[in-house]
Amino acid sequence: MKRNKHAVIIVFIVWALIVGLGWALLSHYENVPGQSQPLPEHWPLATKVRRTPGLPTLLMFVHPHCPCSRASAGELSLIMAHSQKKVRAQVLFLRPETLSEQWVKTDLWDSAMRIPGVEVVMDDQGKEARIFHANVSGQVMLYDARGNLVFSGGITPSRGHQGDNDGRDAIVSFLTKGIILHKQTPFFGCLLFSSLQQS
């Protein structure tokens, strides 16, 4: 009886350890942000992305199949609910050169199309992503009306998670009050280019 109890407690501890370890691994994976490369502080000349004079520009780079970016799209729709017409927002969907347009038009594409005031653009061969030095799906950049980078990073609290987060707060605060809360937040998601980073 007593020994039995001891055995059960030992099993419990082993179980707790295993579960804790699994949990740690998962959390670690979800919370490792993409590595930020130095971004163009000024609107790059080489880009073909359009700006509207007198309006800030918001860019979001997306891998069309990245499940984590669904959360980012959800957050974007919240931002747009606050600040339509105060910003020109564009979501750039990556289309690798070997793949068709059909590959790009996923449910993520559809949900981006449905966000009011958002332009959805196809980024052939990831040319624009390279120009803006974006490498993770869900990465957002905000340039002010004069083309200065005022914010960059993720707009989810962790990988694939929706919820209140600094990225969203920063963008909304700049667009509605002109105050810069944070210049940068961590970002999470699938990699846009296999060559840049191994997972």
């Binding site: 499940p67 990699l191 280019f193």
Partner: peptide, 13 residues
């Protein structure tokens, strides 16, 4: 259903 694969460019796992 929600996140079957993770992507790196055109490659997935």
């Amino acid at each position: 259903v929600i996140s079957p694969k993770t992507w790196m460019g055109p490659a997935s796992q």
